Amino acid sequence: MTIHTTSLRPPDVEEDVQIPLGFLMEMTNATSEDALSELFVRWAIRMTNAERCAVAIQDSDTTFVVHQSGDTGRASAGRSHPIAGSLMGDVLFSREMRIVRHLEQQRYAGCRVLGAAGMGTIVAVPVIGDKLCLGVISATYRKARVVSPRDRAIFEVLASVLGAQVILLRQMTDLKRLVRTDPLTGAFNRNHLAHTAAQHWNDWMAIARPFCIASVDLDHFKLVNDSMGHAIGDAVLRETVRRLKSKLRSGDTIIRMGGEEFCILLGGMSDSAASPFVRRLRNVIQDTPFQTNDGLVAVTASIGIASPDYEDSSFDETLRRSDKALYAAKAAGRNTVVTHVRQDVMAAG
């Protein structure tokens, strides 16, 4: 069997390192840091003489997420491990490669556990990307041996490539978030609506999983902008989103449709179940005046809600019914919630 490779040379290494093209192709398809870490530990075992390999990516000030692979070549699911008191933590902060032998005699508890399991040597290389130390890639050998220059070079290359890929993934994630996020309020925007709408609609069509759309409009918001200025209006919009988010469930989505109009998607909830929930959303806006630089501002909202039924041919049709219920709420005097049902519009509170 022929394994196609390409050559890479890390800094301070005299010879090129042969990297399998299959590894590079898999790497380009990894869409998360977990998938990337699993990929690296699997291939590190194939490419070196190590018994075990691990990738630890820092996920907080105090913890790593660690993926490991043994001689089976399978990567374990990522687990959280403390940074403090670990060899990998010391490598993270020093940003220098460490080779440690006689593991059973080391002060690191993790090394002593490996030593008790018959391991003799560990090499740990910092993963650096965009001048940041992001984590550590390590390899364990069964004997207290000298790590070959070839293996050292491979791990330096893997650490360098992993650092670059982690930074690239994070930049892509940030870009996707920016494309789908309203910069003023932090709510999602219309670009995100299409993606989320498709998920809800597909679940409804496939397994009849209900969802509810709440169309929200701040009452007389133009008066706030005209009388107090757009800076105050912007502050009111930001606080509105903050308050709504504080009451939403983890899977719910709030989208700024434009101006003072918002759309809230409530997954797994029919309109009858959503009605009291949405009334609580209305109350969180009206119950406490908004504190601004120009004093307190009283704000209320009109809300229309609708859930799909089998006469709806698309998500957009359900959204139009939610909008109709919103218009009815405004016509009924504002600061109310109205539910749209077929052939009628029924006030819900």
Rank of each mutant, 00 (worst) to 15 (best):
D226E: 15
R9D: 01
A208P: 01
L319H: 07
L265A: 04
A214H: 02
D151P: 06
L114A: 14
A35E: 13
K245V: 00
D323R: 11
P126K: 01
E14A: 15
S148I: 12
A198D: 15
L223W: 07
D34Y: 06
A208T: 10
V123P: 03
D203G: 09
H195M: 11
R46Q: 13
R180A: 14
P126E: 06
A124V: 04
T121P: 02
F315Y: 13
V66E: 03
I45W: 01
T28R: 09
K143G: 08
W201C: 09
D226M: 14
R279T: 08
H200E: 14
E261R: 05
I45L: 06
L193N: 09
Y327P: 03
S86Y: 07
V123T: 11
R280M: 10
I3S: 11
P183F: 10
V136P: 01
P11N: 12
W43E: 07
Q199W: 00
A197H: 03
D309T: 14
V113R: 05
I99V: 15
G129H: 00
F277A: 13
T63M: 12
A332M: 08
I285T: 02
A159Q: 09
R101L: 00
S322K: 02
S227V: 07
S313G: 14
G120Y: 02
M257D: 04
L244W: 07
K330I: 09
S272I: 06
Y141H: 04
T288G: 01
Q286Y: 08
E311D: 13
I255Y: 05
L319A: 08
A306I: 05
R52N: 04
S148L: 13
T240R: 03
V123L: 15
H195Q: 14
C133M: 07
R42F: 06
I99N: 09
T336C: 13
S7G: 12
V157H: 00
L319W: 07
L223D: 09
D219E: 10
G73A: 06
A348T: 08
A301L: 01
V136R: 03
G89M: 03
R180G: 04
A117K: 15
T336K: 03
T292W: 14
I137A: 02
S7C: 14
E317F: 02
G268A: 13
